[in-house]
Amino acid sequence: MAQEAAAVIPARLAPRVDEHELIRAVQRGDQNAFEALVRSYDQNVLGMAFNLLRCEEDARDVYQEAFLRVYRHIHSFRFDCSFHTWLYRIVTNLCLDCLRKRKIRKEEPAVVETAEGPLDRTYSVEEERAAADPERNLCNAQLAGRIHLALAALTPRERTVFELRHYQGLRLKAIGEMLNTSEEAAKNCLFRATQKMRTVLGDFS
C-alpha cells in the first residue's frame, strides 16, 4: 500500500508535461492527452463563460462547444499563436454569439429584478466571501444586484471586452486580436462600457 501511494504522489507533483508535447499527442489522437489538456484550462474557461453569461446552462453549452471545437480542429493548430490565445478566441466568440442571440430574443437569465431582491445562486462563492462581515451583507447584496444590472446594460461586445479586461486581465491589444479588431476599437469599447456602468451605478462612491 505504502509503495503504491509513494508511486502516485510524485506523479501528481511532477512538473506539467510540456504543453507542445501534450498538444502533439492530442493531434495524434491520444484521448488521455486531450483530457489532460482540457483539465489544465477548463476551470478558467468555465469561470469566464459563467461570469460573462451568468447562466449555468449557457456556460455549460459554451464549455462543451469550445472543447469539442478544440477536439475537432486541434489537428489544424500550427503553434503560430499560443494554445491559450487559440482557445480563448474560441471561447470569447462563443460567448459573444450567446450574448447576441440573447439580445435578439430579449432574454436575460438570472435577472435580479430589484437591487433589494433575493439573489440567485449565480452570486455564490465570491459574494459569500465578501459577505463574511454581516454588517456589509445588505450593502454587498444590493451592490451585486446593481452591478448585475449595470453589466446587463452593456452591448454584447462591450460586455465581452469588459470581461476580458477586468476579469480575465487581458491587455486591450490581445483583446483586439481575439475579436478580430484593433486595439483602438477595443479601447473605445472598454471606455464606453465603463462610462455606461458609471451612469447606471450613479452615485456609487
Binding site: Q31, F34, E35, V38, R39, D42, Q43, L46, G47, F50, N51, R54, E56, A59, R60, Y63, Q64, F67, L68, Y71, R121, T122, Y123, S124, V125, E126, E127, R129, A130, N140, L143, A144, I147, H148, H166, Y167, F204
Partner: peptide, 26 residues
C-alpha cells in the same frame, strides 16, 4: 465591487462538464 460581484460556478459544475465532454469525445 466588480471583483466581488464576480459570478462563480458551483464547485461541481466543472466536473459535470468534464464528464459530459469526455463521454462525448471518447
Amino acid at each position: 465591487a466588480f471583483d466581488r460581484a464576480r459570478a462563480v460556478p458551483r464547485p461541481d459544475l466543472v466536473a459535470e462538464c468534464r464528464g459530459e465532454l469526455f463521454r462525448r469525445t471518447a
